[in-house]
Design a protein around this nucleic acid. Structure first.
Lengths: 161, 161
DNA sequence: TATTGTTATACTCTATAACTATA
DNA sequence: TATAGTTATAGAGTATAACAATA
């Protein structure tokens, strides 16, 4: 690979760490809350949004990158009564997803174990300075990567043309 | 979440950066080499092993974490003639996967675009010092996470009991 | 008995395109 | 015409358990 060895190392470490962490989280979410990691993320994202509500497209862009994929997941979460969907005020085409009380309870049920995996998997082996540097650097990389991945609306537009 | 905000930030940044990069790579591998990202990884892993060969279980542990999953992928790669399977010398139960010449060619075909995504997605926005620190810190985290995820053999043993 | 790898099965998830309704 | 969301369909990938062969 015509890439500086140090950079190759950083890239592979990022991908492997992300993958391993995802594996651990998948297990933890299933065990503690009977939901997938993706569903945990959707609930967590909704919970931190004002009023616990977000438009479907907006939500799709933060996690799934395909509208149909989100409809599928929202259907499952709605059946489990962890979220509900209602018409968006102001735009009759649009649908707003809202986390339910039970959704918040489920989230609370999963969070302690989740935090503990993060602590044991990442921060037990880093000091505060390293953790801060990691947050900063990864934040920059994430922001950069966001600009390179098209939104769900853009993807659809491109596919049509 | 009862986790230091800075740590939460680092954790989410890691997961999102990993996810976005995976999306970009999936596209790139498909476009440049008509293979999935996972298949690219399997070929890359084999290519860097001595003799381009590795036992199936060993290979499973580096990527897939399930033996049946690897058998499935190996079947697809073998049909595409990118790898072949042969009996392992010394243990008649065991199978060794070997990357073919065509497998190496395919890898070479994918690598330039791959490197370019890594460069544009990660290192255009980091200086050398940041890149080095990132490699170091993520390496530590990855090693830690490896100890927390059981091998495919361990998982099987546990499931049986 | 334990381990290696494969396979049959069943399931989850995903993307694409076609569809409805509203802007 | 363009956009929001859903859905039908079809395909890829996964895990589990049962299997055969070897240690």
């Amino acid at each position: 690979m015509a890439l500086d060895p140090r950079r190759t190392e950083a890239y592979f470490a990022l991908m492997e760490a992300g993958g391993l962490l995802q594996l651990l989280m998948e297990e933890q979410c299933q065990r503690d809350g009977d939901i997938s990691y993706l569903q945990f993320f959707l609930l967590a994202r909704l919970a931190q949004a004002p009023g616990g509500r977000m438009r479907m497209t907006e939500l799709a862009d933060t996690v799934v990158h395909s509208r149909s994929g989100l409809s599928y997941q929202a259907g499952k979460l709605e059946k489990a009564e962890l979220l509900r969907r209602e018409p968006s005020p102001g735009d009759e085409r649009s649908v707003t997803a809202v986390i339910t009380e039970e959704g918040r309870r489920r989230l609370e049920q999963v969070l302690p174990g989740h935090v503990s995996v993060v602590e044991r998997g990442m921060f037990d082996v880093l000091d505060d300075e390293q953790a801060a540097a990691l947050a900063g650097t990864l934040g920059v990389v994430r922001d950069r990567l966001r600009t390179l991945v098209p939104s769900s609306a853009e993807r659809r537009r491109r596919a049509r043309d």
